Amino acid sequence: MLLPLGAAAGLAMLAAAAGQSFAQESTQGRLSGLSLSGKEPIQIESDKLEVRESENVAIFTGNVSVVQGPTLLKSGKMTVYYAKDGGSATTGSANIDRLEVDGKVYVKSETQVATGDRGTFDMKTEILVLSGKEVVLSEGDNVLVGCKLTVQMKSGEAQVDGCKKGESGSGRVMMSITPGSTPEAKTP
């Protein structure tokens, strides 16, 4: 089923280099190449689609796959919330308020991968949040690990928060950088 979900591209393009500094609870940086793309068609596949027209909700469950150009989003469930006065969820012509994805979220762009347990994208504020027991961003050999990634889509600014002590370790963000390992660094 094809839907005009430009926001799905935002979820699929979230993984990027998130800065090059360590901090105790969070690290802030600017994501490169992160943008919304409403120009390319979006292909959504799932085992089941439930449309609740009266609630302005469409729920995709079971092996959800969203593809737009070179970006891919996979999850167990994706819920699309439509604006109350924004058209019809059945036809996909409605204005989208927000997206929520759950169940081992996997996002891949051309060179970057992000994983987490759940994600949300608010269309009005253009804020993306990927969270879970462990959120991992990687590009080549470079890896960033935390428990929450918050991205301001308009500016490309991002913040990664560490896990609370006891949940998944020390409460710190972990970053491993290999100089020259990103595609940009390898170009002459």
Rank of each mutant, 00 (worst) to 15 (best):
D85F: 07
G92Y: 03
S26E: 09
L73Y: 01
D117Y: 04
S155Q: 04
C163D: 01
T71L: 12
K84A: 14
G103H: 02
Y81V: 08
T79I: 10
E53D: 13
E50M: 13
G38W: 06
G38N: 10
V129D: 07
M78R: 01
V67Q: 06
V57M: 08
L137Q: 02
N142M: 04
P70R: 06
E167D: 10
L72C: 05
D97L: 12
P41S: 01
S109D: 08
E55P: 01
K154N: 10
Q159P: 05
G38V: 06
G87V: 03
G146C: 03
A23C: 11
Y82P: 07
T150V: 10
G92T: 02
E110G: 15
I59A: 04
E110I: 15
K48T: 11
R30P: 06
K74C: 05
M78F: 04
I44G: 00
G76Q: 05
S26F: 11
L31E: 00
V64Q: 00
Y106H: 15
Q20V: 13
S93P: 09
T61G: 02
S75R: 01
K74G: 05
Q43K: 09
A83V: 11
S46W: 01
G162Q: 01
K165D: 07
C163G: 00
S21P: 05
E53M: 06
S93Q: 12
E134G: 09
S32I: 12
N56H: 07
S109N: 08
F60R: 00
T125P: 05
D47V: 05
D141G: 08
Y81D: 07
K164A: 13
L149Q: 03
Y82N: 10
L128H: 06
M78G: 02
Q20S: 11
G87D: 03
S65M: 14
Y81H: 07
F22H: 10
